[in-house]
Design a binder for these strands. Structure first.
Lengths: 110, 110
DNA sequence: AAGTGTACCTTGACAATCTAGGTAGCCTCC
DNA sequence: GGAGGCTACCTAGATTGTCAAGGTACACTT
């Protein structure tokens, strides 16, 4: 099991979740793992952040959920992106890019 | 006057302040302006964030303050980086770079 | 029957930021 | 001399995002 040592950059969690789901449906637990994996063990999502974030995002209509059965035969709630969610992902991606670029720009300033 | 329309990426404010001061001493108000300017009007720091941040940072020993007189003949509190602050800037810069890179990596994942 | 791992959930605390107020002094222009 | 605008500082309160730390329950293995 990977043991990344860092906290998230606040404000990026929703985007990361949407991104994780853009590849395909996943249950909550799997989303956390996917993020760890996609980031090469640099980013970790605590469950206490993850589940509330999922409700938040579902309430906004960017994902929908459905109970099912996991690969390990356990009950699990599967999430998938809605069309609005896909759009939102794009918006957040642009926003993140713009802000992150700006920060990098400042940091590069002599 | 520039009117940037965006909020900061949470967690970057301290770093931005330290960076702004790495060029030379500034008063609080000037720090805010410098950040706007260095980021090409993309980043804005609200005063309600800025001043508390300055106390926080000073309490940590990364900056020191001194009352003086501004360019416009007004009383102003000037801040300057301590040696520890310079070191801290480096640490935060590395951390930021690592995390931002990880987020970009996730975003680039097909 | 005990232990391990998966999967979900909640509560409470904390930290960072913003909104929206405020004070005071300087300068300009009428 | 007074109004208005800008500089410069400060604070209170609300909101939000995240984490830490707990918990439940089931499946599988030994």
């Amino acid at each position: 099991m990977p043991t990344p040592d860092t906290k998230l950059l606040q404000g990026t969690l929703d985007m990361l979740i949407l991104k994780a789901l853009s590849v395909g449906s996943l249950h909550g637990y799997g989303i956390g793992q996917r993020i760890v994996q996609m980031s090469n063990d640099v980013l970790r999502v605590e469950e206490g952040s993850l589940y509330p974030a999922l409700y938040r995002i579902e309430r906004q209509g960017w994902i929908t959920s459905e109970w099912g059965v996991s690969e390990n035969n356990l009950r699990a709630k599967f999430y998938k992106l809605t069309r609005a969610g896909r759009k939102q992902l794009q918006v957040e991606e642009e926003n993140w890019g713009r802000l992150a670029e700006a920060v990098f720009k400042v940091m590069r300033t002599a």
